[in-house]
Structures are given as C-alpha cells and as structure tokens.
Amino acid sequence: MNKRNKLLIRKTLISIVMVLIVIVSLFPIYWMLLTSVQPRHELMNYPPNFYTRHPTLEFWKFTFKESILEFFNSLVIAFFATIAAIICGATSGYAFARYKVGGDTLPFWILSLKFFPPVVAIVPYFLMMRTLRLIDTCTAVIITHMIITVPFAVWMIKGFIQEVPRELEEAAMIDGCSQLNVIRIITLPIIAPGLVVTALFCFIWSWNDFMFALILTRNKAMTIPVAIAGMREAHGLMWGEVSATAALGTIPIIIMAIILQKYLVRGLSLGSIK
C-alpha cells in the first residue's frame, strides 16, 4: 500500500511538471491568438491583458480581405510541389524498393539532396528565373520547392513500399494478375496512408518555406510567410493584423500535424525511426 501511494505521488508530481511544460510551450501561441482578437485599444496595454472581455474579429476580417491572395498562392505552390513530389516518389520509390535500381548508391544520393541548402540555390535560381522572366510567378517557387519535396518523397515512399511483403505481390501475380493490376489492387491500398503522410509533410515543408519565396516573389506570387515578414516593414507594427495573418498561416499546419501524429517522428527523422 505504501509503495503504491509513493508511486501515485510521483506520477502526480510528474504530471504537474508536464502541465507546466505544456503551459510554457503553448503560451506564445496563445499570446498570438489573443493579440489577434483583442480590440485595438487594449493592445500594448501595461500591465498586459492575459485574456480579453471584448473579443473582436476586426483583425481577422482584415486578414481575410488583405492576405487572401497570399494564402491562395501558398496553397497553389504547396499543392503542386506536393503533387510533383508524390508522382516522382511513387514511381521511383517503387523501382528502388522492388528492383534495386542503382543499388544503394542512387537512393542514398537522393536522400542526401534533402539537405541541399537553399542558400546555395537562391543565387543561381534568382538569376535563372530572371532570365526566363519567371520572377514573381508561382511556377518559379514550385520548381525550387521540388529540390526538397522530391528527395523527401522518394525516400519516404521507398520505405513504405519496402514494408509491403513481397510475397503478397508474388501470390497475386501467380493468380494471374498483371503487374499493373498488382500495384493497383494490392500495393497501392497498403501504402495509401504512407502516401498521405508523405504528401502532408511535403505540403507543410513547402507552406513553411521562406527563403525561396522571399527571393523569387514580389507581390503577385507572394506567399504567406513572405507576407508576414513584409507586413512589419510595410506598415510599422500592426500587432493585431500581423497576429491574425500569422495565426491563419499556422493553424492549417497544426491541424495537419495532429492528423499526422502517429507518423510525425518517422517523417521528421526521414524514416530512420519508425
């Protein structure tokens, strides 16, 4: 009985510590959301308000009016960068996993490209897109985002396909299924969750990218992160407006992360931890 009590006390203490850690780690996000719904005259009060009695949607309205184009651009860019990655990833991932094309060298070369530093690519891409007159178009940003999304997708999908037992495919083949049908009926449904996970990761990466979009866009193709960084320079500090835009850019990603939960570590560690 005594031992059980001790254990209970210990667990309670640890839980209290965890709750404190949770409060610290969510506080900045709460503060940003609070700033986005606080009436203007309450912002920058001292002492600061830790909650508001008069929530307002003024700043959110502003964001939906002023940042809708940037939001849409981010969506288009992330969507196409993801689609391209999934197509490349599914085709070559399958070939790597099943036929060992290029042995070990080629897939690992592709994996290493995941770490290709944007800062090396920005100068040549800026000069090239300038020559092609593609500056300030979504196309330019999509192409550069593929540097990161494609290697990631190839690597992840290769891992997911390797987990499908080969015997399953072979058995279907013996039953007279054609190769294409085997992929369609057997392999694809099994790796479907893996494809979704990979797609979400590519989407998040492209959505959060700042450096490429900063250099390749001006205003027509500007993305959400660039807009947030620029609002500060353009209008001085509009705390409420910037907070609402930042929240709008962050919330979809947090929702995706919650969907991803189970696969989060696997994706972030590039499949090294399952």
């Binding site: 850690i21 949770v22 780690s25 969510l26 900045p28 996000i29 940003m32 998040i204 959505w207 959060n208 700042f210 959400i224 992160p225 660039v226 947030i228 960084a229 930042a246 850019g249 962050t250 990603i253 947090i254 995706m256 992360a257 939960q261 989060l264 972030l268």
Partner: peptide, 11 residues
Amino acid sequence: LLIPMMVMPVV
C-alpha cells in the same frame, strides 16, 4: 508538446 515544432519559423 509537439505543436511548437509546427509553427512556421517566420511566425
């Protein structure tokens, strides 16, 4: 606890 990791760096 994983939420902070999803906030975009600019934000």
